[in-house]
Write a protein that binds this DNA or RNA. Structure first.
Ligand SMILES: Nc1ccn([C@H]2C[C@H](O)[C@@H](COP(=O)(O)OP(=O)(O)OP(=O)(O)O)O2)c(=O)n1
Ligand SMILES: [Mg+2]
Ligand SMILES: [Mg+2]
Length: 1116
DNA sequence: ATCCTCCCCTAC
DNA sequence: TAAGGTAGGGGAGGAT
C-alpha cells in the first residue's frame, strides 16, 4: 500500500489510507491487515481501545522476534520498568527532614476521589510525618487507599483494584496526627468496603478503573472492555498477545465489512427533514433581532434530533487494554524518571504521532488533498465571483464525541467527552465535549481534571481516529456530490459556494446535505448560510447544535452589533485581550475605531481585517486552493533529554518524519527551520504531565540552493542548525522541523526515472532557463573567465583531454528559450567522450547505452584498445589501504567509514551544540567557510595523521593560515617512514613559492587544501591516500552543498573536478563515490550556472553547442 | 520598496 | 499518568 496508489484510488471507493501519512509509507506491511481487519470489525461498537496495535507491533524493533524471545525480553523489561517505577518521582516523601514525628513511616497513601480534607492537605500531613504520598496508584508502593465516599459504581471497582489494600477514611490520618502516633486503620475502613473480599483481582489498571466512574452496565468506555477481563499491566506487563494481536491505529482500511453493515443499517432507517416547519428559535439569534422566519431559516433544534439514528450495535468484543502494551513497546535506555518521554521510548516520535489528536487534525488536510486533488474548480470560482453567490458553512456537531457515541444513543443526552484519560486528577486534554457537557462548562482543551470537577458524571470516551477519518470521508463524499466548489477547512468542516443560478435555495441545499450526513454517518451537522465566508461561519455558530441558520445581508449589521469580538474568526485570546484593554468588547464598539487607528495599532493587514470583519465584510474567495507552502513536524510533549545522544536520536527521527512527509506530498524544500522550545529559566516543572510548560520559542533557519527531500541531507542540515542554538539539551522541551520554499517534484523526476541520466539531462535543460534569474550576468561572465582558466589549469594535470576548449558565451538572455523536456536533443554519438563513457560505472554506462539504442556499445567495441586504457592509473587498493575518516570523533588511521554511517547519531556529541560539555573540539558540521584564509583546523584535525602531516608540509609553501599552527600535531614517526610520504616532499618542492593559479578556484580553504593533496598523491602514485583525500573532498563538498549559499560554486567545482578524477582514474573501490558525485551533481546542477561543467564531463565536445542553446548562462 | 529571518497568533 | 500538531497569516526589524 503506497501513497501513490491511494492517490489514484477512485474517490468513491474506500481506498486504503492512513491518517498518519508516515505509517503507510513506512510499514508497507500487509501481513497485519487480515488480523487487524478482524479486530476492527469487532472493535467497532466499542471504539478503539487504548491504542497499540498490530501496526505498531510490526514496526517495533521486535517485529521479527519469536514469541518466546519477545516474551522473555518483556519480562526482563517489565522488571526494569518496575524498578524505575519504584524510584520514580510521582510520589512524594520527605525522608529525614520531616518536622513532625515520623508516625507515618512506611505508610504510603493514595487518595481516591474527593476527600475532606483535600488530598493536598493529606499530602501535607503525610510528608510532615514521614509518610509517602502517591499521585498515582500502584499496588507496589501504596499501602493504604484513602477515600471519603464513593458512588456505588466506583465501589465495585475500588474493591477490585485495591487488591486487599486497606481502604481507609481520612480520619485515620487526622486522628493519628492528633494522637501523635500511628493508630490502627481498621476502625477507619470505608464502610462500603468492609467485609468484602476482592473477587476480581485483575483490573486493567487504576487508569482504566477510573473510566468506569459513569458506567453503562459494566462496560468501560475508555478501554472498551469488561472490567473483569482487564489485567493490571503495572503488575504483569504486556502479554505477547497484547503486542501481536491488537488492531491498527493509524488508519488505513475503509472497506471493512463493518462499515458495509453499518451503512446498510443506516439506509434501513428512513428519515426526513421537515424544512418547511423551521423557524428561528434560537435565543441568541432572537436577541439579535433576526428572528423573522422569512429571512432566517433555522431548523428547530429538535427536529433533526428526532431523526432516526443508526440502531446501536450491542457491545461485542473486548479489546486488550493498551496500557500493558505501552509499557512493553518502549525500550529502556537507562534509568529515568519519566515514563512517557523521549528518554524511554526510542520510537517516541512515531508512537507519539499515532496517538496525538492534534497531529490527526493537523495532518488531515494533506490526506484530503490526496483524495481530492485540487484545482479542478478553483478557476471557475474566480470566474463565478461576478455572480451573486451564497456561502454555506457545514460543521459537524461535537465531532469526535458524535462519532464515538454513534452507537450509544443512550448517551446522547448525557455529558460525554473524548479524552485520553479519565483520571479525575489528570492533565489530559478534553478534545471534544458534547452539548450536554458544555452546559457544565466542559470545553475542548481543558484538563480532564477540570472537566471532572465541572461535571463529575462526565463520561469519557477514548479516541477513534480511524472512525473520524471514515466519517470525514463520508462527509466530503456527500459535499462533493452536491457541489464542486468546496473549501475544506478541517476534517469536520467545509465551505460550499453556490451561485444563485445553480441553486435557487441554498437553505434547502443545506438541509438536504445535513440530512444526508446524519443518515450516512449517524452524526449530526450544522450549517450556516450567508453571503461570505465570515458570515456563514458565524451563522453556523448560531445554528449549533444540529441546526442551520441563514444570515441575510440586511441582518448582518444587527447581528454583529452585540457580538463579542472574540467570536470573530481571527480574533483569539491575545487580540481579544488587547482590544479589551481599549474598552472594545463587541463588534459594534470595534466599528467605532477608524481603520487607520486599527492599522497603526495592529499592523496594516490585521487592522484591515478587524475593520472589515466588524462590518461583516470578508473579501476572501471560496475554494482558492493553494498548494501547500510548508511541511513540518514537531513534538512538544514528552520531550526530555539527558544527553546529546538522546537529543540527536530524537532529531534524526524527526528528520525521517519530515523527509517522509515531503515525499508523501511529492515536494522538496529549500528552507529548513528548526524550532526548539527551551524551558524558561524561572519555569518549574510544567503543570501538564510531560508538557512543555513555559518556554522560550527559538528558531533558526537555513536555505540551501537545491530543494531536497533526502533524509540524509535533511539530517545534515538539521544537525548543523541544531549546533547553532548552543543550547543545553536538558532545557529542551520541544522540537520541530519545518520545510518551506517548496518545489513540487515534477512527474519527470518521479519514480525510477528520477535518478536516470536522461531525466537529469532533461530536467537540467528544462530548468536552465531559470539560470538567468540566478545571479547577475555580469558577474557570471567575469567569473566564468576565471573559472575556465582555473579549471583548465587544474584539470590539466589530471586529464587534459577532458576539458574541451572554452566557450565564451555571448549573453543574450532576452532571446533565450529553454527547450522543453521533450525537445531535449541527444548529443551525437560521435560527440561523446568515449574514454569517459567507458569508465562510467556499468549501470550508468548501460543507461547511456540505452539512450542511444544500444549503439554506444557497438561504437565502443570498434574503438577498443585505442584510447583511455593507458591513461588510467592502475589502482590496486588493498583492504583498508585508504585511511579515511570524516568522523570528528575518530582519529584512528585506517578507519573505514561506511557510507550510511557518515553522519550517525552519536557523532555530533561534541562541539558548540553541546554547550557546557565540551566546546574545545569544534563540530565539523558547524564549519561554514567564507574565505581563503579561513582554514578549518577541526577538519584538518580529523584527517588521518599522515594526511595531516602532508598538509602541514605543503601549506607553509605558499600560505599557511595562522590557526594551523594551533594544531597540536605530533608527526608520527611511522608516517615519516612511509614510502608514500615521499610524495609530500616532492610536492612541497614543486609548489614552493609558486602557488598554482587554480588555487583561486577553491575559495573554500578545505577543498583547496584537499585539492593540493590530491594532486600531490596523484603525482606520487599514492593511491590509498588519493582515495582518502578524494573522499574528504567529497564529504566537504556535500557539506558545502547542503549548507552554504556562498560555497556552492566551490562545491560544484570540487565535485566536477572530483568526478573527473574518479572517472578518469578509475579508482575501482571508489565506485560508490562516483555515484555520490553524480547524485549530488544531478540534484544540484539543474539550477547551477555551472551546468555546463557537468555536461562537459560526459559530453565535452558538446560544449559549444550546449553553450549556444543555453544562452548566456554558461560560463565555460 | 522588497525580501528575509525570527518570531507571534490563530484555527481546527 | 498521557500523547500541547500543523499550517497559514502577519508583524518587527534588519539587509539590500
Ligand atoms: N482544541 C481542540 C479543538 C478541536 N479538536 C478536535 C475535536 C473536535 O471534535 C474537532 C472539530 O473541532 P470543532 O471546533 O468543530 O469542534 P466540535 O466539532 O467538537 O464542536 P462544534 O459542535 O462546536 O463544532 O477537532 C481538538 O481536538 N482540540
Ligand atoms: Mg465541529
Ligand atoms: Mg470544525
Amino acid at each position: 500500500m503506497s501513497f501513490n496508489s491511494s492517490r489514484s484510488a477512485d474517490s468513491g471507493s474506500k481506498s486504503k489510507r492512513s491518517f498518519n501519512s508516515i505509517s503507510s509509507n513506512r510499514s508497507g506491511n500487509s501481513n497485519s491487515s487480515d488480523n487487524s481487519k478482524k479486530k476492527k470489525t469487532t472493535q467497532k461498537t466499542l471504539g478503539m481501545a487504548w491504542g497499540s496495535n498490530s501496526r505498531s507491533a510490526s514496526r517495533s524493533s521486535f517485529r521479527n522476534s519469536p514469541f518466546s524471545d519477545f516474551g522473555s525480553y518483556m519480562a526482563v523489561k517489565n522488571q526494569k520498568l518496575q524498578e524505575q517505577f519504584e524510584a520514580e518521582a510521582t510520589s512524594s516523601s520527605n525522608s529525614g527532614s520531616s518536622n513532625g514525628k515520623p508516625i507515618f513511616q512506611g505508610v504510603s497513601i493514595f487518595v481516591d476521589g474527593f476527600t475532606v480534607p483535600s488530598s493536598q492537605e493529606l499530602k501535607g500531613y503525610m510528608l510532615k510525618h514521614g509518610g509517602r504520598f502517591e499521585n498515582y496508584f500502584s499496588r507496589h508502593r501504596v499501602t493504604h487507599i484513602i477515600c471519603s465516599n464513593l458512588p456505588d459504581s466506583k465501589i465495585k471497582n475500588l474493591r477490585s483494584f485495591s487488591a486487599g489494600l486497606p481502604v481507609v477514611k481520612p480520619a485515620w490520618l487526622l486522628d493519628s496526627v492528633g494522637a501523635n502516633k500511628l493508630l490502627s486503620w481498621v476502625p477507619y475502613q470505608l464502610d462500603q468496603v468492609v467485609g468484602e473480599t476482592h473477587n476480581q483481582p485483575k483490573l486493567s489498571s487504576f487508569f482504566a478503573l477510573k473510566s468506569s466512574a459513569v458506567s453503562v452496565g459494566s462496560t468501560n468506555y475508555v478501554t472498551g472492555q469488561e472490567n473483569s477481563e482487564i489485567e493490571d499491566p503495572s503488575l504483569k506487563g504486556g502479554t505477547i498477545n497484547d503486542a501481536d494481536s491488537s488492531g491498527p491505529c493509524g488508519y488505513t482500511d475503509h472497506s471493512k465489512p463493518c462499515s458495509r453493515d453499518w451503512d446498510d443499517s443506516v439506509h434501513g432507517n428512513s428519515t426526513s427533514v421537515r424544512s418547511g416547519e423551521v423557524t428561528c428559535h434560537d435565543g441568541k439569534f432572537s436577541e439579535g433581532n433576526l428572528s423573522e422566519p422569512s429571512n432566517c431559516l433555522m431548523l428547530d433544534k429538535g427536529s433533526v434530533d428526532d431523526l432516526d439514528q443508526p440502531s446501536p450495535c450491542p457491545p461485542s468484543a473486548s479489546v486488550v487494554s493498551d496500557n500493558a502494551k505501552k509499557s512493553t513497546s518502549s525500550a529502556i535506555t537507562g534509568p529515568s524518571k519519566q515514563h512517557h518521554s523521549t528518554l524511554v521510548d526510542p520510537n517516541f516520535v512515531e508512537n507519539y504521532f499515532k496517538k496525538s489528536r492534534l497531529h490527526f487534525i493537523g495532518t488531515w488536510r494533506s490526506r484530503y488533498r490526496k483524495r481530492f486533488p485540487s484545482s479542478k474548480y478553483s478557476s471557475s470560482i474566480v470566474n463565478a465571483s461576478a455572480q451573486r453567490t451564497s456561502v454555506i458553512h457545514v460543521d459537524m456537531d461535537c465531532f469526535f464525541v458524535s462519532v464515538v457515541i454513534r452507537n450509544h444513543p443512550e448517551l446522547r443526552d448525557k455529558p460525554v467527552a473524548v479524552c485520553h484519560s479519565d483520571n479525575p486528577r489528570g492533565t489530559a486534554e478534553i478534545s471534544s465535549a458534547n452539548y450536554p457537557a458544555r452546559d457544565y462548562g466542559v470545553r475542548a482543551g481543558i484538563f480532564v481534571r477540570d472537566a471532572k470537577a465541572l461535571c463529575p458524571h462526565l463520561t469519557i470516551f477514548p479516541y477513534d481516529f480511524e472512525a473520524y477519518e471514515e466519517v470525514a470521508d463520508q462527509l466530503y463524499d456527500i459535499l462533493h456530490k452536491h457541489c464542486n466548489r468546496i473549501q475544506a477547512v478541517s476534517c469536520d468542516e467545509a465551505f460550499i459556494e453556490v451561485t444563485d443560478s445553480e441553486v435557487e435555495d441554498p437553505q434547502f441545499l443545506a438541509s438536504v446535505i445535513r440530512k444526508e450526513i446524519v443518515e450516512t454517518t449517524g452524526c449530526t451537522a450544522s450549517a450556516g448560510i450567508s453571503g461570505n465566508l465570515l458570515m456563514a461561519r458565524l451563522a453556523t455558530k448560531v445554528a449549533k447544535p444540529n441546526g442551520q441558520c441563514c444570515i441575510p445581508s440586511e441582518k448582518v449589521d444587527d447581528y454583529l452589533n452585540d457580538l463579542p469580538i472574540k467570536s470573530l474568526p481571527g480574533i483569539g485570546r491575545v487580540l481579544e485581550e488587547k482590544l479589551k484593554r481599549k474598552q472594545i468588547q463587541t463588534c459594534g464598539q470595534l466599528r467605532m475605531i477608524p481603520k487607520e487607528s486599527l492599522q497603526k495599532e495592529f499592523g496594516v493587514k490585521t487592522g484591515d481585517m478587524l475593520w472589515n470583519y466588524s462590518r461583516g465584510v470578508d473579501n476572501r474567495l471560496v475554494g482558492v486552493i493553494q498548494e501547500s507552502k510548508s511541511v513540518g513536524a514537531e513534538v512538544n510533549w514528552g520531550v526530555r533529554f539527558n544527553d546529546m545522544k538522546d537529543c540527536q536520536h530524537f532529531l534524526m527521527n524527526l528528520c525521517k518524519e519530515v523527509s517522509l512527509r515531503l515525499q508523501g506530498c511529492a515536494v522538496e524544500g529549500r528552507t529548513f527551520t528548526l524550532k526548539i522550545k527551551k524551558r524558561r529559566n524561572d519555569a518549574e516543572e510544567p503543570v501538564k504531565y510531560m508538557g512543555c510548560g513555559d518556554c522560550e520559542n527559538l528558531s533558526h533557519s537555513m536555505t540551501v540552493p537545491m530543494a531536497t527531500d533526502d533524509v540524509d541531507i535533511i539530517r545534515r542540515l538539521t544537525t548543523q542548525l541544531f549546533g547553532s542554538f548552543h543550547i543545553d539539551v536538558k532545557d529542551i522541551r520541544g522540537m520541530g522541523l519545518q520545510v518551506s520554499k517548496l518545489e513540487s517534484v515534477d512527474t519527470a523526476k518521479q519514480g525510477h526515472e528520477r535518478n536516470s541520466i536522461r531525466s537529469w539531462l532533461a530536467s537540467a535543460s528544462a530548468s536552465s532557463k531559470q539560470q538567468h534569474e540566478i545571479g547577475s550576468p555580469a558577474k557570471e561572465s567575469a567569473s566564468g573567465e576565471i573559472d575556465k582558466q582555473h579549471i583548465d589549469e587544474s584539470l590539466g594535470r589530471f586529464s587534459t583531454d577532458l576539458m574541451g576548449p572554452a566557450v565564451q558565451i555571448g549573453t543574450n538572455p532576452s532571446n533565450f528559450e529553454a527547450p522543453s523536456n521533450q525537445d531535449f536533443a541527444l548529443p551525437d554519438l560521435g560527440d561523446l567522450d568515449l574514454g569517459v563513457v567507458e569508465s562510467l560505472p556499468p549501470d550508468l554506462f548501460s543507461e547511456i547505452n540505452d539512450i542511444y539504442d544500444g549503439k554506444l556499445i557497438n561504437l565502443m567495441s570498434k574503438k577498443k584498445g585505442k584510447s583511455v586504457a593507458q591513461e588510467r592509473v592502475q589502482v590496486a587498493l588493498k583492504e583498508g589501504g585508504g585511511p579515511f575518516c570524516c568522523d570528528p570523533a575518530c582519529v584512528n588511521e585506517n578507519c573505514v567509514v561506511d557510507k550510511e554511517e557518515k553522519y550517525p547519531v552519536d557523532k555530533i556529541q561534541s562541539g558548540p551544540s553541546n554547550v557546557g560539555i565540551s566546546t574545545e573540539v569544534p563540530n565539523k558540521l558547524d564549519f561554514m567557510p567564507s574565505s581563503l584564509s579561513q582554514v578549518d583546523t577541526s577538519v584538518l584535525q580529523q584527517l588521518p595523521e599522515e594526511l595531516r602531516v602532508d598538509i602541514l608540509q605543503v601549506l607553509p609553501a605558499h600560505r599557511q593560515p595562522e590557526c594551523v599552527s594551533d594544531i597540536n600535531l605530533d608527526p608520527p614517526s611511522k608516517a615519516k617512514k612511509s614510502p608514500e610520504n615521499q610524495a609530500s616532499v616532492s610536492s612541497k618542492e614543486l609548489w614552493a613559492g609558486n602557488p598554482p593559479e587554480w588555487v583561486a578556484m577553491f575559495k573554500h580553504s578545505n577543498c583547496y587544501i584537499f585539492r593540493i593533496l590530491a594532486d600531490m598523491y596523484y603525482r606520487s602514485g599514492s593511491t590509498g591516500r588519493l582515495s582518502a583525500i578524494l573522499q574528504c573532498t567529497l564529504s566537504e563538498s556535500q557539506t558545502l552543498l547542503d549548507a552554504s549559499n556562498d560555497g556552492w560554486d566551490d562545491a560544484i567545482c570540487c565535485l566536477c573536478d572530483l568526478l573527473k578524477q574518479y572517472i578518469k582514474l578509475r579508482v575501482e573501490t571508489d565506485i560508490e563515490e562516483i555515484y555520490v558525485c553524480f547524485r549530488l551533481l544531478k540534484r544540484f546542477t539543474t539550477k547551477s550556472k555551472l551546468l555546463s561543467q557537468v555536461y562537459n564531463v560526459i559530453f565535452p565536445h558538446l560544449q559549444a553547442s550546449v553553450g549556444e542553446s543555453y544562452g548566456g548562462s554558461l560560463n565555460i
